[in-house]
């Protein structure tokens, strides 16, 4: 049963890729994927919080009494979320303004609590680091994919990093689907992607 570290890492990228397979963490998935930059920013914040909280919880798994474990998880997660929020505010302020309320909402993101409860509380530190990176990077890739899809059809452009590198993919004659960057477009895109993932994952 024991998986290797590599397996713990790679399972987050495909088998258990959070929004598509676990269908967790959908609130920010729907809300911040208007552009690739936002999606990646959110993903990086989640990776940081996930890895740090996994490590800390895994280290303390023998000290934390099971009856108050959820409270302890929340304290740990909330602490790291605040750290991310402050650091983002200090160094990437425009991104912070765009992500806004969704950074503090990482606290109640089910992925984090789910990984703490189901994984870090039971496994060793190294495995937890691998799991945190795997799930976090999987989440980032999922957000980036969804955002790329929406941005491409919604505006005809792809923002790679900042305003400097905007690629015009379809040229100026392209009429953007405004619908794709609006909230309902997020649901439709996510539904289509889930569908594709399910077909692709069927054996």
């Amino acid at each position: 049963m024991a998986k290797t570290l590599v397996q713990e890492f790679t399972k987050g990228l495909w088998e258990e890729i959070p929004p598509f397979r676990l269908v967790l963490g959908l609130c920010p998935t729907l809300a911040v994927t208007k552009s690739v930059e936002n999606g990646i920013g959110m993903g990086v914040a989640v990776i940081f919080v996930l890895v740090c909280s996994n490590v800390l919880i895994s280290m303390m798994r023998n000290i934390i009494p099971p009856k108050v474990r959820i409270a302890c998880f929340i304290v740990v997660i909330a602490t790291f979320v605040c750290v991310v929020e402050l650091v983002m505010q200090a160094y990437t302020y425009p991104l912070f303004l765009k992500l806004g309320i969704f950074i503090p909402l990482i606290v109640v993101n089910c992925i984090l609590l789910g990984r703490a409860e189901a994984f870090a509380f039971k496994k060793g530190v190294l495995a937890s680091i691998a799991d945190g990176f795997g799930i976090g990077i999987g989440y980032t890739i999922a957000l980036a994919m969804l955002a790329a899809f929406r941005e491409l059809f919604g505006s005809g452009n792809l923002t790679i990093w900042g305003d400097m590198k905007v690629m015009e993919v379809f040229g100026s004659s392209f009429q953007p689907f405004q619908f794709m960057v609006e909230a309902p477009g997020a649901f439709v895109c996510l539904g289509l992607m889930l569908c594709v993932m399910n077909i692709a994952g069927k054996k």
Binding site: I63, P65, V68, V76, V83, V87
Partner: peptide
């Protein structure tokens, strides 16, 4: 455990 954890978090956040 909860007290120590909370105190540690508070300290870290204040520092940052």
């Amino acid at each position: 455990v909860l007290t120590v954890l909370s105190a540690f978090s508070g300290g870290l956040l204040a520092y940052i």
